[in-house]
Design a protein around this nucleic acid. Sequence first.
DNA 1: AGTCAATTCGACTATACAGTCAATATGAAA
DNA 2: TTTCATATTGACTGTATAGTCGAATTGACT
Lengths: 194, 194
Amino acid sequence: MAKIDLDRRAEIGREKRARTRAQILEAGTMLLAERPPEALTVDAIVEAAGVAKGTFYYHFQGIEELAAAVGERLGESFDDLLTAARLELPDPIARLSFAFTQFLDRAISDPVWARLVVQSSHAPTEFARSIRAHLKADLTEAIDQGRLTVRDVEMAADIVLGIWLQVVRSSLERRPAPDLAGQALRAVLRALGA
Amino acid sequence: MAKIDLDRRAEIGREKRARTRAQILEAGTMLLAERPPEALTVDAIVEAAGVAKGTFYYHFQGIEELAAAVGERLGESFDDLLTAARLELPDPIARLSFAFTQFLDRAISDPVWARLVVQSSHAPTEFARSIRAHLKADLTEAIDQGRLTVRDVEMAADIVLGIWLQVVRSSLERRPAPDLAGQALRAVLRALGA
DNA sequence: AGTCAATTCGACTATACAGTCAATATGAAA
DNA sequence: TTTCATATTGACTGTATAGTCGAATTGACT
């Protein structure tokens, strides 16, 4: 009689647990969008999430673990936007252009997401590494096809990421100009010599 | 008999004061190069500077004031590098190119300076505003002369600053490629459509 | 060698924050 | 209604940091 009871109990637990965990994750996301993790306190998180301090430690080991979880979700959001491009576009430059525009549109329409990405770009996180790796794969392919003036992959990646990040930062401070994404993309392609 | 004494005393004071203040400023500069101001503690500063806590508060109101002082010195270092260009080069694109290269060479040869600049670029400081203003002045002039494909000054500034910052970040993580500055400059000029 | 204004020191108080834990609440199942 | 594994609570302890202040030191000048 014990077996079924225990499994069911655990399942109920997981559901309730998941809801509260999501609240904390959401609060953490908002706060990490406006300050670096070093400046984030557990008290601030639990206040924003509307839970008790003990609850935070029931779900996370500490702020680092929360930051890692937020980073993972951020990485998934990038993957979501990338999947379409990777499957449908065989041309590396078209793929890169599509992804660049997708990410930029998202940043413009979702400032919290944009702030979070900008903050995350400061400390080199796992997801930042992954993005740069994806980008370098496309750029290497394009360079091997002799379609770029730039020959150094690292320099090419810096150009794309640098312009993207700075345009995103600008879009958070000023009202984004119309066709911002298009203008930025054309500048990137010119810089790469595509 | 009092007048001269008091003035002389004050002068002696200013000299001693200046030495200790410089120590604290130096320590603060090192620490602000590796962490954001929100994550900086007075205890860490006084330990690095080798002075007592009270001494810090004798010279600065708090960490914000120290950060402002560091920012001001950083601004001066930029002005120093800019002065030559502003006086000798009448052409805005040549001026911009010269400054870009100067700043990049400095960043590559002085990693602490580079880290400090990168950190400062996160929060919009007074000196960041000033740099962008200088840059926009040159870009506006070039655009008015019809020498750039990019028409939007903000976009043009984002391109220059974005590539510069990202290349500097890269130079701190990887070993800088030979002719990094030249490559980066050519990419910027292509992006602007010069 | 004595004087004294300016500077420096570090112990001290107060507060903020991290992390723990015994008590309480929850809610599906019996 | 009662049971009980799980989840939640918030008071509590310990530590780190902010900021203060009276005492000690410094060093040019007499």
